[in-house]
Amino acid sequence: MEEKIEEILEKIWMLMEDERDIRDELTEQDIQELVESGLLEEKNGTITLTTSGYEEARRMVRNHRLAERLFHDVLEIKGESLHGHACIMEHAIAKEVEEAICTLLGHPRLCPHGRAIPPGDCCKLHRKVIERIVLTLKEMENGERGRVSYILTKKFPRMHKLMSLGLVPGAEIELIQKKPTFVIKLEETQIAIDDEVAGNIYVRRVPE
């Protein structure tokens, strides 16, 4: 599907969310085009999405907001560029990638702007057990084991310090305690770290 059409579908979704009339923002030409592609239909004088149009719009909005979460949470991109980056990425996300991102982020429900992310299949599966696969040390329980997936910090010295102690992606760790200071066990070394640094360390749970 053309990117332009995908963009329009996304806009329609937003207008619907805000309970506004689709005609407010779209040109007659755009509406015509979508009707011809079977994504929009006119019923009793109001324009609504067809079933396939609804599915497409939902997918695009989901991709866009997941992308925003990814940029915001993982890559720490802030501000206006967030939306722009997400706009480019949303068109390129395949189904399995979408689920991987969603899982990585812990099946988030809201985008950084506070709008709802339409849930995907992977989310429905996890609704009951909202257990994230990747989480920060802060969210782990005492005695849990995990493998470091990534360390998220813009502070060079902090990154080097952690890495030089062997706390690198792939390292297996055990969380010994969280208070008063985090203590983790890495090989035969125990390392104490404060909560701010602990929040930078993302770990993938290793099942017992």
Partner: peptide
């Protein structure tokens, strides 16, 4: 300057 990090081997 920032709050200092605490990363110490036990």
């Amino acid at each position: 300057g920032d709050r200092p990090d605490f990363i110490l081997e036990l």
